[in-house]
């Protein structure tokens, strides 16, 4: 009898056992991501919810529950209402522009032409470049004295000798400027997503439309766009969530000025709670759009699932 069959399994065998069991291997591999999200997203998120119902400030050590008072205060604050409106304008205008431009770009990029790789690289560049770096570049482009835009416009004769727009210093121009930069920044992702959607349409469908006699616009609006629509919507929702929650462009370019004309909810929450020390007030501002974003997120997940099934 030579049967050491009852020997306890060693570490290697046990590890092999874990990797064999799909259930445990799956959990093990998900763990880092779950941990990361829990610590960096979920904990601050829950803290923010807690703060928004309290009177906590940077100085207090004994927070007190105040119910919806922070939200009531926010609604009575003209700065908040202004930021709410700005957020809507900023997000909607920028994402409308993004989706139109990204679709055009994606359709153009689907064709074969010389130097396509270079164009693709250039389009992706704003996405891969650090946003602070890009924004600082834009800061210089919009500079009140050295603005490249003004210089160019004057030399081609569009700007007269008496006009010299201060891009970041005049309320409407400032909003247009941050929208412009945000479009520049988020278009690459939307383009890539649309490109993915476009290439998922079988060539036969395009050929059939061609043979069936569709001209360019019928082909585009009756066949191509409706077929990429689910995927375009994913890009739109991504862009919307990203625009509503992001403050980097505003922070670097205008700090919300002039006269709060470019203040958005995210930047207002930051200035209020971190710079101003009013943690509870800032939290209430930051959480204000949570229901809207939650709806967006649910829609996003549903669309993503539908795109998977099709």
């Amino acid at each position: 009898m030579t049967a050491p069959a009852l020997a306890r399994p060693g570490f290697v065998e046990r590890a092999a056992g874990v990797s064999d069991s799909a259930r445990w291997l799956g959990r093990l591999m998900l763990a880092p991501a779950v941990l990361y999200i829990a610590l960096v997203v979920a904990v601050p998120f829950l803290m923010a919810i807690g703060y928004s119902f309290s009177n906590v400030t940077i100085g207090t050590s004994t927070p007190r529950f105040v119910g919806l008072e922070n939200f009531r205060n926010a609604l009575q604050d003209p700065a908040f209402l202004k930021a709410l409106g700005n957020t809507a304008i900023f997000s909607l205008v920028s994402q409308t522009l993004v989706i139109v431009l990204a679709s055009i770009l994606a359709i153009a990029l689907q064709r074969r032409f010389r130097g396509k790789w270079l164009v693709r690289l250039l389009i992706l560049l704003p996405w891969v470049a650090p946003i602070s770096l890009g924004s600082i570049g834009w800061l210089w482009i919009f500079d009140p004295v050295y603005s490249v835009i003004n210089w160019t416009l004057r030399h081609v004769g569009i700007l007269g000798p008496d006009s010299w727009p201060i891009w970041l210093g005049q309320p409407n121009l400032a909003m247009a400027s941050i929208i412009g930069v945000h479009v520049w920044r988020t278009m690459p992702l939307a383009t890539i997503i649309s490109l993915g959607g476009l290439s998922s349409i079988p060539q036969d469908i395009h050929d059939a439309a061609e043979v069936d006699g569709a001209g360019f616009f019928r082909h585009l609006f009756v066949i191509t766009l409706p077929l990429v629509l689910p995927i375009l919507l994913v890009a739109v929702l991504f862009g919307l969530v990203f625009s509503v929650t992001d403050m980097i462009v505003v922070y670097v370019l205008t700090r919300g000025g002039p006269f709060d004309s470019t203040q958005v909810l995210a930047s207002l929450a930051f200035f209020k709670s971190i710079d101003g020390g009013d943690l509870s007030g800032g939290a209430a501002v930051a959480l204000f759009l949570l229901p809207v974003l939650a709806v967006c997120a649910v829609l996003l997940l549903r669309l993503a699932r539908r795109a998977e099934v099709v």
């Binding site: 079988p202 036969d204 469908i205 050929d207 059939a208 439309a209 061609e210 043979v211 069936d212 006699g213 569709a214 001209g215 066949i223 409706p226 077929l227």
Partner: peptide, 20 residues
């Protein structure tokens, strides 16, 4: 001439029906 000007109709192996 482009396909639409040739007065032809085509049936594809995949049928290429417009799915939407």
């Amino acid at each position: 001439l482009p396909p639409r000007a040739r007065k032809i109709a085509m049936v594809f192996q995949s049928y290429a029906l417009y799915p939407h």
